[in-house]
Design a protein around this nucleic acid. Structure first.
Length: 586
RNA sequence: CGGGGUGUAGCGUAGUGGCUAGCGCGUCUGCUUUGGGAGCAGAAGACCGCAGGUUCGAGUCCUGUCACCCCGACCA
């Protein structure tokens, strides 16, 4: 029985000034966590109890799925990460350190290399596979900007699993088992979640899905179709290309002088004044905006890339980066323009783009730029635009790229309905890694023909510490936290409300009885604290059931309050233990 | 790393260049109080982020520096 009189706990009446999101504010105010350094937190007794409950649920579901737990060090040598090139590729996000001899070490940001090497060291036959191993470990990432308290720290706990199979079919089975285990885990954690596609096909088609907990403070944006099951991270949304259009009636293209048309908006209004089209007014979606990027490859190479999108949409850098990985893109700067004299900044058009053009810059367009679509676009001359510039007739791009911003109402690729946009916290990620790491470290086994084959892998993560914050984020009100029972630090928050000694004795006895039948109790046995303080603390702390031993005790009753609904009931003292036990069994 | 902001007691904060840096919460002592963050009386607790400078005088002005927070780019 946890006793408030001795519990290491100090609740705060005011929000900490450095906290922004509800989970951070409440976890600090309720005395669950304290900050040690940016993105680094200490778990206090109540917080650690919740954390351990979450960890326990994760572990038990992993074990139930037949995965085996191992535990790597957090402190790792450099060499394994050299094999996969991640010692350098990981960049500044990697915490590096040296031992006294000057040898390089790192604090593990994720453990693909270690798991792969471990299996390589032990197994060498197809008969040993499949196998799935996992660990629950502190991970370290020197994030450029930790934020939102526990939601995005530099030290955090992650459950990471890796599956090892001899072929794609086996990998699919391992992947599906993890998917099922994750569904069971998050359901038990009391989290509302959505499974979204996380990668576009352009990356090579390996399956990857994210488990997102919808909340306004989530860092991931995803789309969800209200009329079918489709859900995807914005990075993975595929745009439905319209059918090609018959452009036989479109006038021949013509170049016009368009002064003061520096912005799309200005161009559209100018066009509607001086170059009206026959059927309807021009809109921003009729302009073709061409943006040039410099793409830095992982090997240090640089190449320019031109992207054409309808003028009513921006290019979504996240989508672009996701598609280009591991290369990185940045908008063209003046210094880059100097190298391409045929480009007129602000008036770049398809004529000067593409492999065949003078610039030679690869030119990719949005899927909406179908054959027969009719555009206003740059004429590669200051203050001039082409009108009635038709795709397939007047220009041809080198290919399609789907990186324009995604908007609510855009068509679902599955059923065509307009989808909705929401935000969510990434609480889990399952991913068919394939043979990348196995190849890098040489993980091969003999198959039934005695041939060496490279193992194929899956990698699966759950943010354990993050899940605590995600639950807090989804489950609180203006008074405080509201824990789902299975993760709550106790089942019952027992309050002695009053000063009568008999009342404390009755509460004490009730607490013991509850504990004896397996009900976890947090007992507010403080004698010098007024009932109001106790009530407020109980609501802040967020244990699902609050039992008040107070003024109704004289009639043989205690009050039982549901933290979530606020519903209160008077229950006869002798029935409480039974009631609580039933409640606990659900 | 780009942009914005803030550093005053454990927490939240006030402080036109001028006396001993103020208030609330929390903490301690005593008395009172006990169904919605109690009252009275007293007490402890601050190198005003750090380093320079201007000035008779700096929490306040200037320069530098560090730290932290927020918005972006990056991620469980």
């Amino acid at each position: 029985m946890l006793r408030m009189s001795t519990l290491f706990l100090r609740t705060l009446r005011e929000d900490p000034s450095d906290a922004e999101v509800p989970s951070h504010k409440l976890l600090v105010r309720a005395g669950y966590i304290r900050r040690v350094a940016p993105g680094v937190f200490t778990w206090l007794p109540l917080g650690y109890a919740v954390y351990r409950n979450v960890e326990h649920i994760v572990r038990s579901e992993m074990n139930a799925a037949g995965f085996q737990e191992v535990h790597f060090p957090a402190l790792l040598p450099r060499e394994p990460y050299e094999l996969t090139n991640r010692w350098t590729e990981y960049g500044d996000t990697l915490f590096r350190l040296q031992d006294r001899k000057g040898a390089d070490y790192l604090l593990g940001p994720t453990h693909e290399e270690m798991f792969t090497l471990l299996v390589k060291g032990e197994y060498s036959s197809y008969k040993d596979l499949p196998i799935s191993l996992y660990q629950i470990q502190s991970k370290f990432r020197d994030e450029a900007r930790p934020r939102a308290g526990i939601l995005r720290g530099r030290e955090f706990v992650m459950k990471d699993s890796y599956s090892f199979d001899i072929d794609d079919a086996g990998l699919q089975i391992s992947y599906d088992k993890h998917r099922q285990a994750y569904i069971a885990t998050f359901a038990r954690l009391g989290l509302e979640f959505v499974i979204v596609s996380a990668m576009s096909g352009a990356m090579g088609g390996s399956a990857s899905e994210e488990f997102l907990a919808p909340t306004p403070v989530g860092e991931d944006t995803f789309v969800r179709c209200p009329s079918c099951a489709y859900a995807a991270n914005v990075e993975a949304v595929t745009t439905v290309a319209p059918l090609s259009i018959n452009a036989s009636g479109v006038p021949a293209t013509h170049k016009e002088r368009t002064p003061a048309s520096g912005t799309i908006e200005a161009l559209v209004s100018y066009s509607n004044r001086d170059f009206t089209r026959e059927d309807r007014p021009w809109s921003a979606a009729d302009t073709l905006k061409n943006v040039i990027f410099m793409v830095d490859g992982p090997d240090g190479s640089q190449s320019a890339l031109a992207i054409g999108v309808p003028g009513d949409r921006e290019i979504d850098m996240k989508r672009l980066e996701a598609l280009l990985q591991p290369s990185e893109a940045r908008p063209f700067e003046d210094a880059d323009f100097v190298k391409f004299p045929s480009l007129v900044k602000g008036y770049i058009g398809p004529n000067e783009l593409g492999a065949q053009s003078a610039s030679g810059i690869r030119y990719l367009v949005d899927p909406r730029v179908v054959d027969g679509s009719r555009w206003i676009t740059g004429a590669d001359e200051a203050a001039h635009h082409f009108y009635d510039f038709v795709a397939g007739r007047d220009f041809t791009a080198d290919g399609i790229i789907d990186v324009a911003e995604v908007r609510a109402g855009d068509a679902c690729p599955n059923c065509g309905a307009g989808f909705e946009i929401e935000r969510g916290i990434e609480i889990g990620h399952i991913f068919q890694l394939g043979r990348k790491y196995a190849e890098a470290v040489g993980l091969k086994v003999l198959d039934e023909h005695g041939e060496l084959i490279t193992v194929t892998m899956g990698s699966y993560g759950i943010g354990v510490s993050r899940a605590v914050a995600a639950i807090a984020e989804q489950s609180h009100d203006d008074k405080g936290l509201i824990w789902p029972r299975e993760v709550a630090p106790a089942d019952v928050h027992l309050i002695a409300a009053g000063k009568d000694e008999a009342l404390f004795m009755a509460a004490e006895r009730l607490g013991s009885e509850l504990e004896s039948v397996g009900v976890r109790v947090l007992y507010d046995d403080r004698t010098s604290v007024s009932p109001g303080v106790k009530f407020n603390d109980s609501e802040l702390i967020g244990i699902p059931t609050i039992v008040i031993v107070g003024k109704r005790l004289a009639d043989g009753f205690v009050e039982v309050k549901n933290r979530r609904t606020g519903e209160r009931r008077d229950i006869a003292l002798e029935d409480v233990v039974n009631e609580m036990r039933i409640l606990n069994e659900r």
